[in-house]
């Protein structure tokens, strides 16, 4: 096997990994704030992709153009989910919390299947198409743009969380909810903000994904499963951890598919989860 093929796999794994990372960071943020695992995360990714698709199909807007709109829609959905469902199960036993988001996932996926049929769709004429040659390797331009947008979103999120007062309040709530409340931080509003940001991140990832990936009701499932692994690997609640873990998973999946077997590449990542849980349950950057 030549070095070029491996290099090719590394680059495409890296770019895909950035998308995984952005999906994962929303999950991690929400978990960090209220210890709730959002099992409907993949379904929101699917909704973002369908939103991009319909804005393109009916409104003629390219996913790159409609990105802010889709992000706003999903952030709104995040607020709605927090206000309508999550707030009511915050003090409930874990069973109720898991089943609430899991039930939401079931309803959203089945609803999408009912409304839009299980057909595969694509955005047929994206603004950015084709590929570029960089030395011996080829990179799809949509993937490249997607990678850059995801990275930019990460930088923006990082700056927001570390440099603004609201961001610091968010971090404080994530570290110690009670202490934050005592300091006068409106922790409920911070949770709502976490949902808005978390689903906003998913919206960016979904918009970008819709420029080069098939769009169908089940599309979110696999991304969500990978995001769970990324969150465990990076450490529940850690933003930086999600970035590193997402990229790592992209690389492992891509190289594993190349070196071992493409049909088992997802399994390799799943096995990674068990390895993390066995060896270092708090993940790379996590606070257990």
């Amino acid at each position: 096997m030549s070095g070029e093929i491996i290099l090719q796999a590394v680059v495409s794994g890296l770019l895909m990994g950035l998308i995984y990372a952005l999906v994962a960071v929303g999950l991690s943020l929400i978990f960090g704030l209220m210890e709730i695992v959002n099992f409907a995360h993949g379904e929101f990714l699917m909704l973002a992709m369908f939103a991009s698709f319909w804005l393109w199909a009916l409104g003629g807007l390219d996913p790159l153009m409609s990105l802010p709109l889709v992000a706003a829609m999903l952030a709104g959905a995040g607020l709605l989910v927090h206000w309508g469902i999550i707030r009511h199960v915050l003090d409930a036993p874990m069973l109720a919390q898991v089943c609430a988001t899991f039930g939401l996932a079931v309803a959203l996926r089945a609803g999408a299947q009912f409304l839009w049929t299980p057909d595969f769709r694509v955005v047929a004429d994206p603004l950015v198409a084709g590929r570029v040659q960089l030395g011996p390797i080829f990179i799809g331009q949509p993937q490249l743009v997607a990678g850059f947008v995801c990275l930019a979103a990460f930088v923006a999120l990082w700056l927001f969380v570390t440099r603004t007062e609201t961001g610091l309040a968010l971090q404080a709530t994530s570290q110690d909810r009670q202490a934050a409340a005592v300091m006068g931080i409106p922790t409920d509003r911070m949770s709502a903000l976490g949902w808005a940001i978390g689903l906003g991140c998913v919206a960016v990832a979904g918009s970008m994904l819709s420029t080069f990936f098939y769009i169908f009701p089940d599309v979110g499932t696999n991304f969500a499963l990978l995001a769970f692994v990324a969150v465990a690997l990076g450490g529940f609640g850690s933003i930086l951890g999600s970035l590193v873990a997402g990229v790592l998973i992209g690389l492992i999946e891509s190289l594993g598919g190349l070196l071992i077997s493409p049909s088992y590449k997802t399994l390799i990542v799943f096995a990674l989860y068990l390895a993390v849980v066995l060896v270092r349950p708090k993940g790379l950057f996590g606070r257990f």
């Binding site: 469902i85 009511h88 199960v89 409930a92 069973l95 109720a96 919390q97 089943c99 609430a100 899991f102 039930g103 939401l104 996932a105 079931v106 309803a107 959203l108 996926r109 089945a110 609803g111 299947q113 009912f114």
Partner: peptide, 17 residues
């Protein structure tokens, strides 16, 4: 199948709440 799963999903959420 999809219709009953929609109902089921909403049902779980309501029961949990």
């Amino acid at each position: 199948r999809t219709v009953d799963l929609i109902v089921y999903g909403i049902l779980i959420v309501l029961i949990c709440m």
